[in-house]
Nucleic acid binder design. Structure first.
Length: 428
RNA sequence: GGAGAGGUGGCCGAGUCCGGUUGAAGGCGCUCGACUCGAAAUCGAGUAAGGGGUGCUGAGCCCCUUCGUGGGUUCGAAUCCCACCCUCUCCGCCA
């Protein structure tokens, strides 16, 4: 990894960066970083000056030797210069290590349209879509419905793996698969996305590219022997598909959709959402990922969000769209819209998709660039992604929203071609 | 996992044995120009990235780094030595 982060920007926009940190309630010693930056540049200047001299003298040595003349005095001098360069470069490498580590801990700067706020209480509800269903009975939570229908098996999930692992069975497994296929078909056939099936294990560089590392290692599952991580979202492998590449302008925008299982350690979530499918160590998700020019990224964020919303609309699920405030914004995101689906049993809206514009934050880390026109200097692309949707939570929402008094569940119309039945009941 | 071969610019491909204007021949592609009514062909010119400095702030200019990655030897490394990664071929193993 080279110098992917924009020190120049930070240097010349100190106030902006400091305000962004404050709005995020993020503690960071920017002044220390700027001191290191200063030191770095002076070391570089000194070292390069010496290198220039070494190159010149070495050539001179070559000339003398070719002419059969004595060059030992010059050689002695250059040897000294070489030693000094080595010292300086070592010092520089250590400094850059510190600098780089610090830079990787700086979160993205929120977009100007992001509401400033403390926590999720301050998120801005942009719109509410669809009607929550009315029930003539007390709606049950999805885990009760699922267990009664024998399509969700929580106990055996715990037995074979542990807490927060669940087994889908029979129509439950089929419904999950139907949802994946429905979502992929919608996005590939109607929204113009190209389907990707990526690796589920990735290396450290990849995890760093999208911002999971170095700060959030405890949230990930690690295969220690190979030093590979299980992907927490398809965003990670798919965004990094083009790392260290320079794309042609004509290639943009790139739209990718990908199904993967997602693995999250859920460290720090102990005791939260312990029942049901809402918070699992492993869940399925269909992800949407975009690579765009800086000019188009916010327009593309709106479109991407609409593409995710369309899944909920076609499934006939009520939801709302929320703009996350600065205090609730993820580390890498410049702006995020959450889609929250209506869950009747809990009587509230729960996050089912998160659609973000990362601007050039991930592109810098992963070194993803494009050439605006032939011969022009490369620029960083903007990356975006969003769930379209989290499948486990969608399944939960369907069970709850489409439940009937007898415990059966009506299959949403659009899924029937995929699953072959209209209703899931004990007799099905 | 074992044996062998190899990783050079957008691509192909020399150079590596015998270290010295080689940031790198040649070709292809691409861009611009000439020719043409236009095109093809042909001819001419151009065509890496990152970093530092300067600055009328991305015009220009100067410098440094980069030939898979990281070390080492040397006055000097694409070229020599070591480690690691990756690709290909054969063998083994395997869904």
């Amino acid at each position: 990894m080279k110098h992917l982060l924009d020190l120049k920007f930070i240097r010349s926009n100190q106030d902006k960066v400091k305000k962004a940190m404050a709005d995020r309630h993020y503690d960071f010693d920017l002044d220390q970083l700027l001191v290191w930056d200063e030191q770095r540049r002076s070391l570089i200047a000194e070292s390069e000056q010496l290198k220039n001299r070494r190159n010149t003298l070495s050539q001179e040595v070559g000339r003398l030797k070719a002419a059969k003349q004595d060059a030992s005095e010059l050689q002695e001098e250059v040897r000294g210069i070489g030693k000094r360069i080595k010292e300086l470069d070592q010092e520089l490498a250590e400094l850059e290590q510190k600098l780089n580590n610090a830079l990787l801990m700086i979160p993205n700067i929120p977009h100007e349209t992001v509401p400033v706020g403390e926590d999720e209480e301050d998120n801005l509800v942009l719109r509410v879509e669809g009607e929550p269903p009315k029930f003539s009975f007390e709606p049950r939570p999805h885990w009760e419905i699922g267990e009664k229908l024998d399509i969700l098996d929580f106990a055996r999930g715990v037995k074979v793996a542990g807490a927060r692992f669940t087994v889908l069975k029979g129509w439950g497994a089929k419904l999950e698969r139907a949802l994946v296929n429905f979502m992929l078909d919608l996005h590939t056939r109607e929204h113009g996305y190209t389907e990707i099936f990526p690796p589920f294990l990735v290396n450290r560089a990849t995890m760093t590219g999208t911002g999971q590392l170095p700060k959030f290692e405890e949230d990930l599952f690690l295969c220690q022997r190979e030093d590979l991580f299980l992907v927490p979202t398809a965003e990670v492998p798919v965004t990094n598909l083009y790392s260290s590449e320079i794309l042609a302008a004509e290639q943009l925008p790139i739209y990718h959709t990908a199904y993967t299982a997602c693995f999250r350690a859920e460290a720090g979530a102990a005791g939260r959402d312990t029942r049901g499918l809402i918070r699992q160590h492993q869940f399925n998700k269909v992800e949407l990922v975009k690579f765009t020019t800086p000019e188009d990224s916010y327009m593309e964020l709106e479109k991407l969000t609409n593409d995710a919303e369309e899944v909920l609309q076609r499934l006939g699920l009520a939801y709302r769209v929320v703009s996350l405030c600065t205090g609730d914004l993820g580390f890498s995101a410049a702006k995020t819209y959450d889609l929250e689906v209506w869950l009747p049993a809990a009587g509230c809206y729960r996050e089912i998709s998160s659609c973000s514009n990362f601007e050039d934050f991930q592109a810098r880390r992963a070194n993803i660039r494009y050439r605006p026109e032939h011969g022009a200097r490369p620029r960083f692309v903007h990356t975006l992604n969003g769930s379209g949707l989290a499948v486990g939570r969608t399944l939960a929402a369907i069970l709850e929203n489409y439940q009937q008094e007898d415990g059966s569940v009506v299959v949403p119309e659009v899924l029937r071609p995929y699953i072959g039945v209209d209703v899931i009941s004990c007799e099905t």
